[in-house]
Each structure stands twice: as C-alpha cells, then as structure tokens.
Design a protein around this nucleic acid. Sequence first.
DNA 1: TGCATATGAATGAACG
DNA 2: CGTTCATTCATATGCA
Lengths: 230, 230
Amino acid sequence: MEGENGDEEYLKDETESRGEILVAKVVTDEQIQTLRKQIAAYTIISEQLRRMHDVMSVQYLAETGSFYNLYGDPYLTFTSSRIASRNRWTPKSTQLKILEHEFEECNGNPGKQKITEITAQLAQHGPITESSVYNWFQNRRARCKRKKLEGGEAPETKNEACKKKRKKPDSSKTVENAASSTTWKAENLHSQSAEIGNQMLPFDYFSLTSVGSFGCGGWDEQFEGNQLFG
Amino acid sequence: MEGENGDEEYLKDETESRGEILVAKVVTDEQIQTLRKQIAAYTIISEQLRRMHDVMSVQYLAETGSFYNLYGDPYLTFTSSRIASRNRWTPKSTQLKILEHEFEECNGNPGKQKITEITAQLAQHGPITESSVYNWFQNRRARCKRKKLEGGEAPETKNEACKKKRKKPDSSKTVENAASSTTWKAENLHSQSAEIGNQMLPFDYFSLTSVGSFGCGGWDEQFEGNQLFG
DNA sequence: TGCATATGAATGAACG
DNA sequence: CGTTCATTCATATGCA
C-alpha cells in the first residue's frame, strides 16, 4: 500500500467519518481494489491458520490425550465438541444474499473468473475462500435440481434459475455402453461391469457361468426396454 | 422311449433331447429375438465379469480369507456397513498410498502401460479397474492444478507440471479417512499463505488488521461470530 | 438426548 | 484437459 504521508491523512478522515467502506473522493478504485485483495487475503490466511490449528489440535489430542500444554498454555483446553469443528464455513446472511443474487444472475453457473469476483465481494462480509464459493454453487445446483425432480412437476417456483442444460439419459444406458465400447478408451466398460455386478445380477456372481436360465426374472426386465442391440 | 401318448411325448422328447432351452411350440419370433438379445448381452457381461474377477478377486480372497462382503461393501468404513449398491469405486487407504506414490513418481502423468501396472498392483488390495485408476489420475491432476490457481491469481510459470508435495506419511493414518479431508487443507495452507504473503500483500500482512477496520465495516463481527480461534 | 434435516465439503465419474 | 455432475460423507442445527 502506497498510501503513506499525505494520503494517509485523507484516509484517516474517511475512516472517522464513515467507519465503513468508503467511497470515492480520496481513494482511487485501484486502491480500493488493493484493499479488497488484502482483506480477502487476510481472510483466507486466517481461515487457513484456523484450520491448521484444528488439524494440530486433533493430532495433538490423539497423541497426548488432552490439550494440556498445547501451545504451552494449560488454559487452552477445549471441550471435545470444539476440536476440529471449525472447518466448515457457514455463510453469513449477507453473504447468502449475495450468493443467491449471483446465482440467479449467472443462471446458476458462474465461471471461474466470476467466482473469483464473488469471492472477493463476499470476503468483505466475512472469511471465505474460493473453494467455498465454488462448493456453494455446486451444491446449490445439485440440490436445486434434485428438488425439482422429486417435486415431480411444478416448476412453478421462483427458482426457475435452476434450469439445467446437462442431461444424463439414465443409468440403464449401462449395458448399452458396455456393448458399444470396445476400445480401452471405453473407460466405462469396467465401471459398467461393476455396476452390473452390483445391481443387475439376480444371484451369485460366481455361478454366472452356469446361468443358462433365461427366464430368470430380472434379466428380462433389464434388457427388455433397453435397445441393447437394436 | 417307452410308448405313451402323443402330446406329452412330444414335449418330453423336446426337453430330453435338448436338455436346455425349451423351444416349445409357443415361442414366437419375437420371443426368440428377445432371447438372442439376452444371450448376446450375457456374453458381453460375462466377459466383463471375468475380467473383473481376474483382476480383483484372487487377491481379495488372499487378504480376507473369504469373499464375504466382496461387492457388498467394498470399503468397510468405520461407520456402518451399508449393504449393497455402491457403484462407485472408493480407494482403500492402502490403494491411496500407492496412488499417491505413483503420482509423484510419474509426475502426475502415467502412460497407459503404467496405468495397467498400477492397476495390477492396486488390485492386490482391493477391487479396482483401469478406468478408475485413469480417472483418479485425471482428477488428481485437475484438482492439483486448480488448487494451485486458487492460491491467488498469482501469475507464474504455469508450465510447472503440477509438482506435488502432498503427503506426510505420518502417523495416525489408520483413521485416515477421517484425516484425509483435513490433510489437504493443511498442505494447501502452506502454498497459499506463502504465495499470498509474497505476492499479493504489499506489506506485512499481519498489519492488515489496522487496514481492515478502515476498509471494511463489520469486520469485527466476522470474528465474533466465527470464533476464529476458538 | 437422540433423531431429522440442511448444507459444506470431498471425490469418482462423465461430458465437451 | 478443464468443467461439471452425481453421490456421499460429515457436521451443524432444530425439534421433541
């Protein structure tokens, strides 16, 4: 920060009179940007330090059985409930508001760049990291979608921002894929088999070789509506 | 061929001579088609299962002494043994260790051949497929990179091939599932704070607090509400 | 004192 | 390869 000397004085005034985010006259946009970055950086650092502490605490506890003497201060004992419990970010209401707003704005899917911006913005209201923002959007999308599916039909809610573009046919494409993939690039081949192994086989996998019984319940169903080779 | 009445004899002959698929008079073309489909599908699935079996089961048996739980609960967590369907592979701790090691070894990018090798190796510790290994490396690379970028929009030699410094082979890894989540955070911490400290902050970041009060109202509440350091 | 639900986070798999 | 999805885990919180 290059605001020493004269500038400093102005800044001081600002602070005293407003006590909050200051606008314009004395500070340039660039300076504000710098501040924001700093704050954001601080936020991140603090958060990480805290996490580090949590990790250390856990390990320490594991080894010693207590927090006695951790950091050389016997008074710093915590109840077990507090130990590593602070790893999880919880959005403040102000942050949530911003997030919700951006969610609609971006149609649920901000780019990487946008996330950085949002993070910076949110950092002004509390500690946060890009990962958290990223996670938030991911979860939001996923849960929004799920809710829609469950609710059957009634896309009438204001949450129309949750329109999904990506689709996945459905899990029954399993066999289909297996059939069509021949190259190793068929990375699904294996996994699909796994799926088959777990879900489709009506009985013991190891006796499959002797399964000549075509009537065998589940099988018909599986392949019936499945266009397997059609 | 003991002499008997007509119909019955007919069917009986059918069954005895074939000993398998009941062709009986009632089978339509459509049904036959269905059967063919089933057979074809079965062929493919069997082949896949065989491969899976080759890869995974023998060692599993050697390890556990039985096949109990194979496919049932592929990864026995310390929580509850949920039965049945999990299609998704979950690396065991031993497998993870190997993967991590290989990741460093290969600089994050093993060739196809290498993957096959690794798969074989991993198979000794539990069911796995090549595609899973492949995916694992892909994800690892991607997330490693992302993590780096997030550490600050620091402009730097992006040529660097995601050199990992993961791991501290340390102690309490028996419980490692629980610890794994915190693990990367701790590690992540180093690079991030370092980068931020060196590149973003124009001055000692510990003095940020004084700036914070000026640049951002409501800063205090953040810590108050967040019990940053317990 | 537990369960029930909400949600942040982690991660295998899939898409373009 | 970079992103996104889908699912699960783990924790927080509220209720009975």
